[in-house]
């Protein structure tokens, strides 16, 4: 391959990188807390084996093996669900901070952020009462 043939490809890559860097709406760089779509779909598939046991996932369940299946599924599910919820909360927090910093009315935005946090805490506490 000659230099002449390679250059257009390089231009495409340069243009693509410039495009990515210029539009923060369509990329995440250096973001540590971002929900994982595939992991969340995995949660749905795991939940299917719990709400409809025997239909999906492990076959040949019996009354004797059911408790082990549910315990094992819930255990794994709890860990992954916690991870994804935690990531989503961090993601929302970072997003809120970025929005807050960018806003001219940052003090007002921070108040909104704290109000959201309070609401989350209250909702969670109330869910125990249901």
């Amino acid at each position: 391959m000659s230099d002449g043939e390679f250059r257009p490809r390089s231009q495409v890559i340069d243009t693509l990188i410039a495009s990515i860097l210029s539009d923060e709406r369509t990329r995440h760089l250096g973001t540590t807390h971002l929900p994982e779509r595939d992991a969340i779909i995995g949660l749905v598939e795991e939940l299917k084996t719990i709400v409809f046991p025997g239909f999906f996932g492990q076959r040949e369940l019996s009354r004797q093996t059911l408790a082990g299946h549910v315990e094992s599924s819930i255990g794994g599910l709890a860990v992954e669900l916690h991870n994804q919820v935690l990531t989503a909360l961090h993601y929302a927090r970072v997003l809120m901070e970025e929005t807050s910093a960018a806003s001219s009315a940052s003090a007002s935005a921070r108040c909104t952020g704290w109000a959201l946090t309070d609401r989350l805490m209250l909702r969670t506490a109330m869910s125990y009462a249901r």
Partner: peptide, 26 residues
């Protein structure tokens, strides 16, 4: 919300969600 508050909240949400599964099954 601090990182530790996020962690505590995530644990509470996970617990609350799993607690609702019997009702979802119903």
């Amino acid at each position: 919300m601090t990182a530790s508050e996020c962690d505590r909240l995530a644990a509470e949400i996970t617990h609350a969600f799993l607690g609702r599964l019997p009702e979802v099954r119903r």
